[in-house]
Design a protein around this nucleic acid. Structure first.
Length: 863
RNA sequence: GCGGGAGUGGUGGAAUGGUAGACACGCAGGAUUUAGGUUCCUGUGCCGCAAGGCGUGUGGGUUCGAGCCCCACCUUCCGCACCA
């Protein structure tokens, strides 16, 4: 079947010809042809030597190879590719690499289920995804492909780990961790969903006390937070907000309370040190070490009650704990704390509304000014002492409040006990000795000064962000390059002995059992230190988010055996100009990558502190309003869509569906409609009878204007990610060309050739196979991707005439065709003469005339 | 509760404060066709025979003019949440 002709010399509207093979748009044949061509010519390999063009680094979040690509990939990778192709057309040297995030639990779980090696499963999936990407026409530089599960890659994870270890940023600690009882491994805080279940397995996460490796991301909390300001405008505001929220910096003070009979004072963190005189009790987290110590030093009765309470708390799930309307619980410890500012003796309780891992795991209870403390005080009968008059204005004179004003509700009563509402607002301090009369913010400053001079407190910040737990008790990950000597000392594996390769799976039971399967690989785990003593390898592997925290640097020198990346190449390409991926990585991956980038900056390897200059989050692909899933029976398969409509129609559908950030409901879009448009455009490319050398100037002027307006508008639209609008404009231009051929100057008009060539060049971003084919049919031999974006001719952008609207009282009453250079007076004169104007104004009085030549005349009337 | 978005035809969506609904899907009609499909053309916000009127979640405001800016509210989606 001859589906593709260089030159269809008989453009004809005759149906007998139209139905011929040569005039039928055979997307499958076109796709095959160009796929094979690109396989030979490798047009998207980034060749460095002597290339003086400016650079762009466009990156898609690399995929996890679980099965074939799905519709979500089809969307995200279409957008990334469109952006990459756009910058290539604009004359940039574009780096657009691809790799595989190929370590991780799904491979291991699949391996266990089927009794196979996770390697085989993973690399088979990669082969499948790779083939799909090639069919999809992604303009990747395949020569830079990387796999995080290759020793050549994970060697550098280990190198990175050692660098953090040297800097004291990788450390071991014994603490309560999130334990996934199904996957039998620990999870990072970020991997526990809000409902307390595991992001991976869905199991309810439990707490377990373990010694684990951590990265000290909290050292970078301020920088991770403050540097977000630089990204304002080029990152989605939602992602910025989520990161700020996650880091969760609170500014306030630490206050030291002496506990009677306890050697060390107990510090509490508070954002409201101004309310210190209103503290009537103290609460510690029941699962904190502090609570255990305080209980241990109390009566036998308290010890027993405490043990029972602790057990009850630990049995309750995260879901129960997070029920906001839950009644407060707690028990007295029969211990007493001394308020450092007034010497008052206040009782210490344990209650689970205080969290062990935030602040110091202890709070001062100020029931009048904190809702949680108030709820607790009302239940257990603590004094509620108002120390901020929230009715008092912060500036100016104090008001006189009469009983009538309180009665009428004009002024709310300062009575939290009766209202049940804590007084959280600003006001003036009362019942607070030296702070009386001060505003909230002044009182905070003053009380910190008093505490600091007395040595019983200080200004302090605290964060919601926790250190990053990176140990995983699983096989399919990067081994942690640390040796444990028999005396318990830690010995980093020397850099020249990296990588520490994973042992083969033969003989290993990968089934989760609470400890890493690597511990059972006797030959692998037992080693000898240089002094001849015995040691064991650390059997845990790293969180795969370590792999993805720096992979964008490895793309620059993916095959360099001597270093993770070449600083000179990093200088040339990084940071990434445009990162494209799902919002599901808004916190985890992006935060970790930002952290590691800052660490590498501090280590002197790179010169920038933010890895991603701009981020685009694509929406989701839905079906009938919901997420696709096999169980719901609404799954749309990428492969079957690709077979049915072709890569170009699919890509075009993604681009045309709407703004990239919005969800696409596959039931609402029409890949068949996209294919129809492509066929329409392709058909025109075969009908054009002029030669490539033809002089544009003689072309039909209206069509030429439309062509050049599109050239003028396209860059701005593309850079604002308004792909749908660009596609709409291409459709308009194709419709105009169709009309020009059928009922205008005909297929030989130079303007027709110019227009369809511009369509072809722009279309190459969305539908690369079709565009290449059209380019060839138009008589060119090179790739359209190298054709470059044409410049609009400024003289064609000036309109010959514009439509002016005539408004009366803001309503359109008539229209005029006028010169774009018309004067205001002239326009007003013409407007007053229009029929619509005369009819609308009637005999009413004109009170105002606004003229904005050449677009609008608006007349305001009276009566 | 805190934070971030979003509300425009039957549908997806356009619209530097200046003609609301570009473009497409769907639908209707026509041409071609033995027929279907394809292709091409025309129409398609709502009410109304028409003239005309009404229309961007609701109510206010600014303006000659508001889908767009400001205030209040409603609905909805997403993220976080006993974070001291």
């Amino acid at each position: 079947m001859t589906t593709v002709n260089q030159h269809d010399s008989t453009p004809s509207r005759d149906d007998s010809v139209r139905d011929d093979d040569a005039n039928r748009f055979d997307f499958a044949a076109i796709q095959e042809k160009w796929m094979a061509r690109w396989e030979e010519t490798l047009p998207y390999a980034t060749d460095e030597l002597g290339d003086t063009r400016p650079r762009k680094y466009i990156l898609d979040m690399f995929p996890y190879p679980s099965g074939d690509l799905h519709m979500g990939h089809a969307e995200a990778f279409a957008y990334g590719d469109i952006v990459a192709r756009y910058w290539r057309l604009q004359g940039f040297n574009v780096l657009h690499p691809i790799g595989w995030d190929s370590f991780g639990l799904p491979a291991e779980n699949a391996a266990i289920k089927r009794g196979i090696d996770p390697r085989g499963w993973t690399y088979d999936n990669i082969a499948q995804q790779k083939a799909s990407f090639k069919r999809y026409g992604n303009s990747f530089d395949w020569s830079r492909e990387l796999h995080t599960s290759d020793p050549e890659y994970y060697k550098w994870n280990q190198w990175l780990f050692l660098k953090l270890y040297e800097k004291g940023l990788a450390y071991r600690k014994d603490s309560w961790v999130n334990w996934d009882p199904v996957d039998q491994t620990v999870l990072a805080n970020e991997q526990v969903l809000p409902d307390g279940t595991s992001e991976r397995s869905g199991a309810v996460v439990v707490k377990k006390k373990l010694t684990q490796w951590y990265f000290k991301i909290t050292d970078y909390a301020d920088r991770l937070l403050d540097d977000l300001n630089q990204l304002e405008g080029s990152w989605p505001s939602k992602v910025l907000a989520m990161q700020r929220n996650w880091i969760g910096r609170s500014i306030g003070a630490e206050v030291d309370f002496v506990i009677e009979g306890h050697s060390k004072p107990v510090s509490v963190f508070t954002t409201r040190p101004d309310t210190l005189f209103g503290a009537t009790f103290m609460v510690v987290a029941p699962d904190s070490d502090l609570a255990a110590e305080l209980a241990a030093g109390s009566t036998a009765e308290v010890q027993k009650a405490f043990a029972a309470y602790l057990e009850q708390v630990q049995k309750s799930t995260e879901i129960e704990r997070q029920d906001a309307g839950r009644e407060k619980t707690g028990i007295p410890l029969d211990r007493w704390a001394i308020n450092p500012v007034n010497g008052e003796r206040i009782p210490v309780w344990a209650a689970d509304y205080v969290l062990a891992d935030y602040g110091h795991g202890a709070v001062m209870g100020v029931p009048a000014h904190d809702q949680r403390d108030l709820d607790f005080a009302l239940k257990f009968g603590f004094e509620v002492r108002v120390v901020v008059d929230t009715n008092a204005p912060v500036t100016g004179a104090l008001p006189v409040i009469t009983p009538e004003m309180l009665e009428s509700g004009e002024v709310p009563p300062l009575d939290p006990v009766t209202t049940g509402k804590a007084l959280g607002g600003d006001g003036r301090l009362i019942n607070s000795g030296p702070l009386d009369g001060l505003s909230k913010s002044n009182a905070i400053k003053r009380v910190i000064e008093l505490l600091e001079s007395a040595g019983t407190g200080r200004a302090a910040k605290t964060y919601r962000l926790r250190d990053w737990l990176i140990s995983r008790q699983r096989y399919w990950g990067t081994p942690i390059p640390i040796l444990h000597a028999e005396d318990g000392s830690l010995h980093p594996v020397p850099e020249d002995q990296l990588p520490v390769e994973l042992p083969p799976t033969e003989g290993l039971d990968l089934k989760p059992k609470g400890a890493s399967p690597l511990g059972a690989a006797t030959d692998w785990v037992n080693v000898t230190l240089p002094d001849g003593s015995a040691a064991r390898r650390d059997p845990d592997t790293m969180d795969t988010f370590v792999d993805s925290s720096w992979y964008f640097l490895r793309f620059l020198n993916p095959n360099d055996p001597d270093r993770a990346f070449d600083p000179a190449d990093v200088e040339k390409w990084a940071p990434i100009d445009q990162y494209v991926g799902g919002v599901e990585h808004a916190i985890l991956h992006l935060l970790y990558a930002r952290f590691i980038t800052k660490v590498l900056f501090d280590l002197g390897y790179i010169s920038f502190t933010e890895p991603f200059s701009a981020v685009l989050n694509q929406g989701m692909v839905l079906m009938d309003g919901t997420k696709m899933s096999k169980s719901k029976g609404n799954l749309v398969e990428f492969a079957s869509e690709l077979n049915a409509h072709g890569a170009d129609a699919l890509r075009l559908t993604m681009a045309f569906a709407g703004p990239p950030e919005d969800d696409i409901d596959w039931a609402d879009v029409s890949p068949a409609g996209s294919a129809k448009f492509l066929a329409r455009a392709w058909r025109i490319s075969g009908e054009v009878t002029s030669k490539p050398e033809v002089e544009w100037k003689g072309g039909e002027i209206a069509l030429r204007r439309q062509t050049h307006h599109l050239l003028a508008d396209a860059p701005g639209l593309m850079e604002a990610f308004k792909f749908n609008v660009v596609v709409a404009r291409l459709m308009e231009l194709v419709n105009a060309i169709r009309k020009a051929i059928d009922t205008g100057p005909g297929a030989g008009d130079p303007g027709v050739r110019e227009a369809i060539e511009v369509v072809t060049v722009l279309l190459s971003m969305f539908a690369p196979h079709t565009a290449e084919e059209m380019w060839e049919r138009l008589g060119y031999t090179g790739s359209v991707s190298a054709a470059g974006m044409r410049k609009p001719d400024a003289t064609l952008l000036v309109e010959e005439s514009v439509t002016a609207i005539v408004q009366v009282d803001g309503k359109v009453r008539d229209k005029l065709e006028v010169s774009p250079t018309i004067s205001a007076d002239e326009l007003e004169k013409l407007a007053r003469a229009t029929a619509g104007f005369v009819r609308a104004v009637g005999d009413r009085e004109i009170v105002n005339v606004i003229v904005r030549a050449p677009r609008v005349v608006n007349v305001a009337t009276k009566g």
